[in-house]
């Protein structure tokens, strides 16, 4: 008999309607002959029905103010689109005049600062210019003190890199390719960068860096974190390693 070739995964995929037509027919034939297989499929159907029935149909409350805030954001986003003349999707909604104030106060400045960060970042990366944070060179990770900190600092630790410079380890994770990466911040004399370095050929390579300080010298963590998010999403960053896993991963570097 061939029945044992159907793993739990395949039987579950059958229950979930995720199989291709050919495999589906094979499973159908098999469960007609083998009640144990049929029961296994039923178990997967039951768990789904139970969860869907319990959580899916229960009404989830949404506080009025939450919905109102989201509606307001939508208005702001549309104002930004029409103001910049950006291409709009067909189902764009005309914004109500009362939402203009919100857009002017919030949406436009956020978009503007994002563009500055993205522009600045691309600018220096393309030009190959080292990014300096008050004497600490981040771009090439040329500074031995940063490399040392990346090798040894557990996430959450802050260490001084000399008189005015500070390093903070934020998190360690593996990206979609399984490469070990660390997110960190370096600040020195009024400038601050959030950055990601990954291990390549036994050395730390800078993969991402964004300034957290705008042209006016104001601290703008939100926009650099937006850029960081986009980077993490694009590189399929995994969840942060636990303290133990991080320690084990870092110990292999020495």
């Amino acid at each position: 008999m061939h029945e044992e070739k159907f793993t739990d995964e395949v039987l579950m995929a059958y229950a979930d309607g995720e199989l291709d037509a050919k495999t589906r027919r094979e499973v159908e034939d098999a469960i007609g002959r083998d009640t144990a297989l049929a029961e296994r499929v039923e178990l997967f159907m039951k768990t789904r029905a139970l969860l869907a029935g319990t959580f899916g149909t229960a009404k989830v409350s949404v506080p009025d103010d939450l919905e109102a805030r989201v509606r307001q954001m939508a208005g702001g986003a549309e104002m930004e689109e029409s103001a910049s003349g950006a291409e709009v999707l067909p189902f764009r909604q005309r914004s109500a005049p009362r939402q203009q104030g919100f857009a002017q106060r919030h949406a436009l400045p956020i978009a503007a600062s994002l563009a500055l960060v993205a522009g600045g970042l691309l600018g220096y990366m393309a030009a190959g210019q080292p990014e300096r944070a008050g004497g600490i060179e981040i771009a090439g990770l040329a500074d031995d003190r940063i490399v040392e900190a990346l090798n040894v600092s557990p996430s959450g630790e802050t260490r001084q890199l000399g008189e005015d410079a500070r390093f903070e380890a934020i998190a360690t994770y593996r990206d979609g390719a399984g490469t070990l990466c660390r997110e960190f911040e370096v600040s020195a004399r009024g400038t601050s960068h959030v950055a990601v370095a990954c291990q390549e050929i036994d050395a730390w390579q800078l993969r991402f860096a964004a300034s957290q300080v705008d042209v006016n010298g104001d601290f703008v963590p939100a926009s650099s974190l937006e850029a960081l998010d986009a980077f993490l999403m694009a590189t399929r960053a995994g969840a942060p390693l636990s303290a133990e896993d991080e320690s084990a991963a870092l110990s292999t570097l020495r």
Binding site: S61, V62, E67, V70, R71, A74, G75, F91, Q93
Partner: peptide, 19 residues
């Protein structure tokens, strides 16, 4: 009437909140 992007997101707020 076609629903807007915002409407669709608002419709999904219960799901988002649950998740």
């Amino acid at each position: 009437m076609k629903s807007t992007f915002a409407d669709e997101i608002v419709d999904l707020l219960p799901n988002l909140r649950r998740y």
